[in-house]
Design a protein around this nucleic acid. Structure first.
Lengths: 252, 252
DNA sequence: CGCAATTTTGACGTAGTTCAACACGTGTGG
DNA sequence: CCACACGTGTTGAACTACGTCAAAATTGCG
């Protein structure tokens, strides 16, 4: 049974109230390699029940965990959206990244064994939880699971490095925003159309913060890109009219 | 036998010519957890000979490996210094990071199984090589080695994330440079004095490139910090006079 | 509806870039 | 030996993108 099926059992198809969330399908979840059944001794065995709990929810603006907290679980976003933050010396929030449905949170805390950022829900959200101790115990016994785990962790490490690298080449505000929009598009797997509709339930303030810009600057860039017919903004929905041109922009 | 002892056998103590390099001691090398003997069956066994080769050298400005190359080895810098680079659309070099003696290179290519950047020696340098296939084969048989490997990879992932995070909060050129100098100091483990002498054989152009600044801007900041008595610059040697004040600067 | 939060727009200041000139050290060739 | 080119680093002056401050416009929520 996948997440969506589980959800459908408790909610009607017409979603009008706030409690109805769109749950990601397990087959599209980054955690799948360590949750789905593993071949062992010629039989497929499911270990997930030993360490997995599904759909723990987090209220909007609440923390799933905070910086410094000891690592006990790693998470996959099953619905909604989280931001990863740190607080600087001036007590200001600095956003280090976002995690969309299907993406992992906290998997990068395995080395220091404590979380290095706060994970805060943007809107009501939920995660699947994996207990690391139990996961590691299982993986010791099942080589294929272990292999999947190592590959999963390395892949995440790679992806976050790629994202950071795209941003450290201190570019113009315009190319930063272009790079961000394309990064989100790629992660939401909506790259199969010539124009792309992005639903981005993140405030301008949060986007600006993440990109290291002021909200005013970001707003101006949004206006500029719209005036130049590269995007079309309707509130939180952003239509990418010319992804190729955005791609060129992002590489400057 | 550690690297230094090996080196002393072939070179006199008074190093005047270019072929004499300062080799890092194995005990100070990041690769140590997978190179030094492992306890197994109550005996210490040394697996390193199965996958380790020492001191492959790279000439100044030559590539240890290039972007896109298939992963065959991971490396630890045993002498000298490497820069990690990518080439952008305008055929310009973008420096993604530096690796000093004792640090790893290429370990982040385990997921996509190909290198995502060029590794280029700054000055004549050398590395120890570990064959990944053989390393993984050994680690399958020896759980302690495997544990060390996983911890090592996660630790590296953590460290590079920390470095990136310090840089994405788009700060002033001054705080970028302060953060860079302190990062290098920490990595060279020279934080045990009130003033710190850094030998930084990296051109201003390369530092500016890495920090996303223009060489002129960087030069001005160096001058400014010197005028303010925070550092004292003598060519490639930089004396950090007031590390605490630099630390304050870096957090702005 | 009405208030608060968010977003956009305008006017102005500033940090960093750009372009140009210069200084210094090093290597090369006449 | 000097003349010259070349790479590297520094400094000055003008320009520009982004930040800052202020206010208006829009959105969202009780």
């Amino acid at each position: 049974m996948n997440n969506c099926e589980k959800q459908k059992n408790t909610e009607s198809d017409s979603c009008t109230d706030k409690t109805c969330q769109h749950f990601v399908d397990c087959s599209h979840c980054t955690m799948a390699p360590i949750c789905t059944p593993i071949k062992a001794n010629k039989n497929a065995i499911s270990l997930a029940q030993n360490y997995l709990s599904k759909h723990t929810s987090t209220n909007a603006n609440s923390a799933l965990f905070v910086k410094g907290e000891e690592l006990s679980c790693i998470y996959a976003v099953s619905s909604g959206l989280y931001k990863l933050t740190d607080i600087n010396e001036n007590n200001e929030e600095k956003i280090l990244g976002f995690r969309f449905t299907g993406e992992l949170i906290g998997e990068d805390a395995i080395y220091p064994k404590e979380h290095s950022y706060n994970a805060i829900a943007i809107g009501n959200s939920s995660v699947c939880k994996v207990k690391v101790d139990d996961l590691f115990a299982c993986s010791k016994a099942v080589p294929d699971l272990q292999l999947n785990l190592i590959e999963l962790l390395n892949r995440q490490c790679y992806l976050s490095q790629q994202e950071f690298r795209a941003l450290i080449s201190k570019k113009s505000a315009e190319s930063l925003l272009a790079a961000f929009l394309l990064n989100v598009t790629k992660r939401k797997s909506q790259h199969d159309h010539s124009t792309i509709m992005l639903n981005l339930p993140i405030s301008r303030d949060n986007i600006a913060n993440f990109l290291g810009l002021r909200r005013e600057t970001l707003s101006r860039i949004f206006s500029k890109l719209q005036k130049e017919q590269l995007i079309q903004v309707t509130g939180k929905n952003i239509l990418l009219l010319q992804p190729e041109k955005l791609s060129l922009l992002s590489n400057i």
